[in-house]
Design a protein around this nucleic acid. Structure first.
Lengths: 152, 152
DNA sequence: ATAAGTGCAAATCTTTTGCAAGTGC
DNA sequence: GCACTTGCAAAAGATTTGCACTTAT
């Protein structure tokens, strides 16, 4: 486990303890595997990872743990249109471009939403909680393929 | 059925026929109920509406029909975070602000995404297909309630 | 006539839940 | 000790699918 992952993981545990939450095996290890994978995991994937560490945790418990972490804003839960929701640590907000054709996902910075955020607030008094967003469309490559096909 | 709904409905049928698709009872009536309801319907709601017209169509067929309409870009399919996906006619692109607290949804114009669209294209060569989008957050009212509670 | 669409029933997949037993503090 | 968590099994909800039958063209 890389140093920064370990540190991040320990910081999270401390934070939960400080907030008065109980530290249990499923919670510890769920956070561990999420810290290692900088990416996004389905509940199923978290479950598999735990078992690779020989940590026997029930699948329902993984769901409950992830849901609980999401409720406490430790992780985000996102529907990337891939069937199951994906979960990831909620540190720096970031978002995804998902190609409808090849399913590639491009990670993008939160800053692209700065203007949109202030527009929505001004126009509708609405404060978006865009922690983790998925935008569907066509990636560069798949666009050119589409163009090629049209030219046939 | 208001005139504009009827017209829109007939136009859609013509378009499908022109594209060489078969016009069947489930397709006709699904488009009819979607035309009447300017809003968004779950598959279940479409199913119920059909039965209110005494049109006996199987629930699986409603799913297949809606999926087919979505594949052919006649309707959009969106996950508003309410359990079931919602479907609506794909005429003018529009989007939704969904309040995480009270579940109110505010319909917003597509124009708010104009800048975002061009940014994403410039920065990542990505062309978003944001036909029908859901942004979660807190509405004006629920924000002030949250503030009130914090003040208690 | 025939390819496409539908009804029916059952399966699949994701997620949630009730309850008894276990565990952190 | 006691409230909070978990395991287990089962349910719930959304959506898909296999297959024989029907229908639009």
């Amino acid at each position: 486990m890389p140093d920064n992952s370990i540190n991040h993981y320990h910081r999270l545990i401390q934070e939960l303890r400080a907030r008065g939450f109980r530290i249990t095996t499923p919670r510890c290890w769920t956070l561990r595997v999420l810290s290692e994978q900088s990416g996004h995991m389905t509940s199923e994937q978290v479950y598999q990872s735990l078992h690779e560490y020989d940590i026997q945790v029930d699948e329902a418990t993984v769901y409950r743990t992830l849901q609980w972490l999401a409720d406490n804003r430790i992780v985000t839960r996102t529907n990337l249109g891939l069937g199951a929701d994906v979960f990831s640590l909620y540190h720096e907000p970031h978002h995804h471009l998902v190609c409808l054709n090849c399913r590639a996902t491009i990670e993008i910075d939160d800053s692209v939403f700065a203007d949109l955020r202030s527009d929505l607030r001004k126009a509708h008094g609405f404060v978006p909680q865009m922690d983790h967003f998925a935008i569907f469309g066509l990636c560069k490559l798949c666009q050119s393929q589409a163009t090629d096909q049209a030219a046939d």
